[in-house]
């Protein structure tokens, strides 16, 4: 894999080796997941007592049993809820973080270094110690048991990670482009919309993907703020199968975990192309 790390190989036999290496690497990396997928087709009793990862027969009962929980709520609800929260979080992050990032990357304003350090500082405090005070804020606002605590803060750029990400990317964009626009009479707002945003596509796509995955997988926040099973998300739904003090349905959990990877996989497959094309189509060359 190290030898394959060169940007472009020209001889066809190298290419063949590259594919072989990539496939071998993928199989190695995916072994745990393949085990999980195999187990999702096994009857409950066999999962932990039978070591062979390959199921003896294709048994879909874990999928059927897992999709609709005994309580009558199904993963259809969980998926819809997850997608709603993810969509809100993505829009919020794209909007608020790009604005803040542009200010930090390009505009000279008072107290910028202090605010920038503050922004980074918010990344450094472990969230466990601000959970309780935050809960009290949202509870006072009457937002518990709703999606609001999971979405609204994103519109106010609380995910400093993405601000930082975009700052780094904006700083990689040549200044001359903006200077030219300003010579043409564009103001800051116009420059941001017309020059920076289009060039920022790869970072925006990255933000979209990460926001989606992190929100989709976030367990603690969703657990804390959502009380009713009808408001539960996929991440919470998956934990419904596990109970350290009673019956855990591991087969159903593996089945639903396998399924839960599909949307993220598809979204990734779709967006990664954009990631590649993003910068190329803007015609920026040096």
């Amino acid at each position: 894999m190290v030898t394959a790390a060169r940007p472009r190989t020209k001889k066809p036999n190298y290419r063949w080796m590259l594919h072989a290496g990539l496939i071998a690497g993928a199989v190695l990396m995916l072994y745990p997941l393949l085990w999980m997928i195999g187990s999702s087709f096994k009857p409950e009793g066999q999962i932990f007592s039978d070591l062979n990862p390959i199921p003896t027969s294709l048994d879909f009962s874990n999928y059927i049993k897992g999709w609709t929980l005994g309580t009558g709520v199904s993963f259809t609800t969980f998926y819809l809820n997850s997608f709603m929260i993810c969509a809100g979080a993505i829009v919020g992050n794209l909007f608020s973080c790009s604005l803040a990032a542009y200010a930090f990357a390009r505009i000279n304003f008072k107290f910028k270094p202090v605010l920038f350090a503050l922004m980074l500082g918010t990344l450094m405090l472990p969230f466990h110690v601000i959970v309780v005070p935050q809960y009290i804020i949202f509870n006072t606002l009457g937002w518990t048991n709703s999606f609001l605590p999971l979405i609204v803060p994103k519109f106010f750029a609380v995910d400093a990670f993405f601000i930082f990400l975009m700052v780094q990317f904006i700083r990689g964009i040549p200044v001359e482009l903006e200077q030219a626009a300003m010579v043409d009479g564009c103001n800051r707002g116009q420059t941001f919309l017309l020059i920076i945003l289009p060039l920022l596509t790869p970072a925006l796509v990255t933000t979209t993907i990460f926001t989606f995955i992190w929100t989709y997988n976030d367990f603690f926040g969703q657990l804390l703020y959502l009380n009713n099973e009808r408001k539960y998300t996929v991440a919470l739904g998956l934990r419904q199968f596990l109970d350290a003090s009673g019956q855990s349905s591991w087969g159903a959990m593996f089945a639903m975990t396998t399924l839960s990877l599909l949307p993220v996989f598809v979204i990734f497959l779709f967006f990664q192309k954009r990631l590649v094309d993003g910068i190329a189509t803007t015609g920026l060359k040096g």
């Binding site: 959970v131 309780v132 809960y135 009290i136 509870n139 518990t144 367990f219 603690f220 657990l223 804390l224 009380n227 009713n228 099973e229 539960y232 919470l236 934990r239 419904q240 199968f241 596990l242 109970d243 350290a244 003090s245």
Partner: peptide
């Protein structure tokens, strides 16, 4: 009766937070 249920993971954390928040 609104039912709030799930697995054991995180159960106590949520309950403690709710007590701290008066909810």
């Amino acid at each position: 009766m609104e039912s709030q249920y799930g697995g054991l993971i995180g159960y106590q954390d949520k309950l403690s937070t709710e007590f701290a928040g008066g909810n």
